[in-house]
Simulated assay, not measured.
Amino acid sequence: MSSIAGSKSGLTWAVHLSVLALVLLWLFPTVGLFISSFRTADQISTSGWWNALFPAEQGLVLRTGTAADQVQDGNLFVVSGNLFADNDENTDATISTWGTSSRDISAYEPGETADLGDDGRLTVGANGDYRLESDAELTSRRGERVFVTAKTPPEFTLQNYERILFSGSTTDSMAKAFFNTLTVTIPATVIPIVIAAFAAYALAWMRFPGRALLIAAVVALLVVPLQLALIPLLRLHLGIGIGKGYLGVWLAHTGFGLPLAVYLLRNYMVGLPRDIIENAKVDGATDFQIFTKIILPLSFPALASFAIFQFLWTWNDLLVAKVFLIDATGETTVMTNQIVELLGTRGGNWEILATAAFVSIAVPLVVFFAMQRYLVRGLLAGSVK
């Protein structure tokens, strides 16, 4: 019975597990990037994103108040306060151990008193409250250094996004690069779709000499690496005066995307019912009317499928932007290039890099999930008769 047509394969469970594994492999880094974009630098450096909802233990080097803060209490000179508040740290943290020397940072428990010799005696509580007292007047201008091991509660912040999007800094801000990327991506997606739709209709339904050779040429261009055409195309653009600008990068993306667009749309249009086109011609419709009123509406799944591919490829592109959109002033810098520059200037600021990376992938995620129902239909275009 297992060989009867229509029965489920015994390997269905393996397929489901494989799909689940692929989904998780894609989902984990994305979720981790999203969570990290809301975390502070200290939390990112002390614990992984999967521990973002749990208290994290970290070591801090804090200082007490200075001699200028001392008050006289009877025969004692006292400096008191809160280590976290005085050092602009998280006041909700809880101290587990502390010390006054880097050689033994866990010498004391909260509530115990450390003898500092001529500098007096220091007592630190679990909540960070401290009391430094001395029999003689204090003279230190820097305060006593305290090594603290503290558990900090989960903390999320929007400051990373404020810094990336609204700081106004040319080195950190992604706002300008975001709009530059939109300026590149939208025309570079629309232009090849418009040209490829006309070409695909001609190759699918119009009879003219050399049509088979054109189809073969389109298929052959699919396997040509774009790296081979970068330098010749750039020299052509510079020769006619459109290099190093938006027009040049639009035309470059259009040329590199057209073979896939024509191939995909042509395969889909060939599979449309022939009776509809023939009946329209009998009724006196021109090729342009058939194309605009019949073919285009029926070809929307294929158009959307290519739009997803072209948008994602153009949005995430760095190579073409580096070659055709060089700008020393940063006026036309795209997001991928801005992130590369951040790696150089903010390589240690993981919270900034995580936020910039998630801002970069947010729009492609929205586009993909909004149009993914058309993706499979477009990919299967012409594969089954």
Rank of each mutant, 00 (worst) to 15 (best):
M1F: 06
S2E: 08
S3I: 07
K8Y: 06
K8F: 08
L20Y: 08
A21L: 14
F28N: 06
G32P: 04
L33Y: 05
L33Q: 07
I44K: 00
I44E: 01
S47E: 13
A52R: 07
E57P: 09
Q58M: 15
G59F: 15
L62A: 12
Q70N: 09
D73Q: 13
F77G: 00
N82Q: 09
A85C: 09
E89M: 06
A93K: 04
S96E: 11
T100L: 04
T100P: 03
Y108P: 06
G111N: 09
T113L: 05
A114D: 05
D115Q: 07
G117C: 08
L122A: 05
D129Q: 10
S134Q: 10
E137G: 08
L138I: 12
L138F: 06
L138H: 09
E144R: 06
E144N: 12
E144C: 03
F147M: 04
V148D: 00
T152P: 03
P153Q: 13
P153D: 11
R163N: 14
L165S: 06
L165K: 07
S167W: 01
D172P: 00
L182V: 13
V184R: 00
T185Y: 03
T185Q: 02
V190Y: 00
I193T: 09
A196D: 01
A196T: 00
A204F: 03
A204V: 05
R207F: 05
A212P: 01
I215C: 00
V218Q: 03
V219G: 01
V219C: 00
L228R: 00
L228A: 05
A229L: 10
A229C: 01
H237R: 07
G239A: 11
G241S: 03
K244F: 14
Y246L: 14
L247W: 10
A252G: 12
H253Y: 12
G257Q: 10
G257A: 15
L260H: 10
Y263V: 02
L265K: 03
L265R: 08
N267Q: 15
Y268C: 01
P273H: 13
R274M: 15
D275M: 15
I276F: 15
V282D: 15
G284I: 15
T286D: 14
T286A: 14
Q289H: 15
I290W: 10
T292C: 13
T292M: 12
K293A: 15
L298K: 10
S299P: 09
F300G: 08
F300L: 15
A302R: 04
A302H: 03
L303P: 02
A304K: 02
F306P: 00
I308G: 01
Q310I: 04
Q310A: 10
L312A: 05
T314G: 02
V320T: 14
K322L: 13
V323F: 05
F324H: 04
D327S: 08
D327I: 01
D327V: 03
T329D: 12
T329Q: 11
G330M: 02
E331N: 14
V334G: 05
N337L: 13
Q338C: 07
E341L: 13
E341N: 13
G348N: 08
N349W: 02
I352E: 02
I361S: 09
A362Q: 04
A362V: 11
V367H: 06
V367A: 07
A370D: 08
A370L: 13
L375M: 14
R377N: 08
L379I: 08
S383L: 12
